[in-house]
Write a protein that binds this DNA or RNA. Structure first.
Lengths: 230, 230
DNA sequence: TTCGAAACGGATTGGTCGCTCCGGTTGTTG
DNA sequence: CAACAACCGGAGCGACCAATCCGTTTCGAA
């Protein structure tokens, strides 16, 4: 999973073309940075005009670097994705399989809590995006290892599946959203409370049989694809 | 119910004025009905034009009856609210305090699952709406009774508070939303799975202390008010 | 049956959005 | 330094939206 390279060489290519001019590279960077903050603060409904303004460039420049608002958003999310990958790696490196699982969920929730764009995009968007499906598959494979191990150790309920994690995170996102999101007066950790409840809910102790079986990976992706096609 | 008739007599008032004309009353009804279906199917972002079309009236007519899209939405939600109130009453009438609590949560979740408008509006909107705050206060009082009783019976964790329920429902809403919402191919009960996990999470058995204390009622309303003012 | 008030409907307004287009500017190369 | 391709900015386009306005139709009381 550690193949982030390909990505930020000083000569940045679009296809196979020649390196970008110096000012172009600088502007691209500014746009990306502005988009990160703006999306984080206002969610994915923030307007591209606002982003361009904050970046100090014209909208034309913005769209030359990112042909679509959606492309820009995806580029913005990369950081969070990498963060999650790191968290999963850390988790798998630990002996304590419960702590590892809890750590991953906590990190994901933290990202959602501080970045409204991530919160809006994750779930539907994340799994629907064709350009991300390969990466998603890898991520799911790691998550499966994590969950299987925890189950083998008897620290989570028997019927928990890796495919549940995205949904549990969406659930947490729901709580986070109404808890009061980023940049608001008195930024709150209230979501941690509900993460705590969910964590207790996936523990084995006194687990009640779940009424519906877990989604398969296919269901997960298919479902999200159709959801984003609105 | 028939002699005071402040409410749904055949002569429906707006303020203190004279009764509506027959066609007006019929159209108002049609609009409300169309709005219910459309909001349920498409969420609160559905356009008023679409609603008017489905109702077979002009937008002018729609706006005469409901001065604002928001007013129309609120009128639409009434049904769900009533349903919740009934569920709470039923719950309080039962001896089994755990079953009662679970019942209320289930009913709320069912409403969210079949009505995307409700799903979108609940949480932020619901508690922020000034015109609903009185009703919300009543509802919270009933919920408090429910939770206190369950706690006294030892069937839920000690640190659960009534104020947590709205957030837990929002959480469930998050899962429901990404599960695939209403009117979609293969309408799913997957959310029941996560409701199950949350229910286990609020049980006392092996409960881990929660990292953040519950929100006060003031925090709850204040937070939502600011959220909706975007 | 008459007639005025009430209700209707949809063209229109004012606004926002993502995105395009093109005349002007700037970096780079020889 | 010259000269051209690459790059910039922002006015403008088309689409959508909630909400308004006003000429026309319909109801129902007299």
């Amino acid at each position: 999973m550690s193949s982030p390279a390909v990505h930020s060489g000083p000569g940045e290519h679009d296809h196979e073309s020649r390196p970008l001019r110096a000012d172009a590279r600088r502007n691209r960077e500014r746009v990306l940075e502005a988009a990160s903050t703006v999306f984080a603060e206002e969610g994915i409904e923030a307007s591209v005009a606002e982003i361009a303004r904050r970046a100090g460039v014209g909208v034309g420049t913005l769209f030359r670097h990112f042909p679509t608002k959606h492309d820009l958003l995806l580029a913005t999310l990369e950081v969070g994705f990498d963060e999650i990958v790191v968290a999963v790696d850390e988790a798998l490196a630990t002996d304590d399989s419960w702590a590892g699982l809890a750590h991953v969920l906590t990190v994901c929730a933290e990202i959602q809590a501080r970045d409204r764009g991530f919160l809006d995009a994750v779930g539907p968007e994340l799994f629907a995006e064709p350009s991300l499906q390969l990466r998603n598959a890898e991520r799911m494979e790691l998550l499966t290892r994590l969950v299987e191990r925890a189950r083998a150790d008897g620290v989570v309920r028997d019927d928990l599946r890796a495919e549940d994690l995205p949904f549990l995170l969406s659930a947490l996102g729901g709580a986070t959203r109404t808890c009061g999101n980023t940049q608001q007066a008195a930024p709150t950790d209230l979501w941690r409370r509900y993460l705590g409840i969910i964590l207790d809910g996936i523990r084995p102790s006194g687990a009640t049989p779940l009424p519906v079986s877990a989604p398969t990976l296919e269901q997960l992706t298919a479902r999200c694809r159709s959801a984003s096609g609105s």
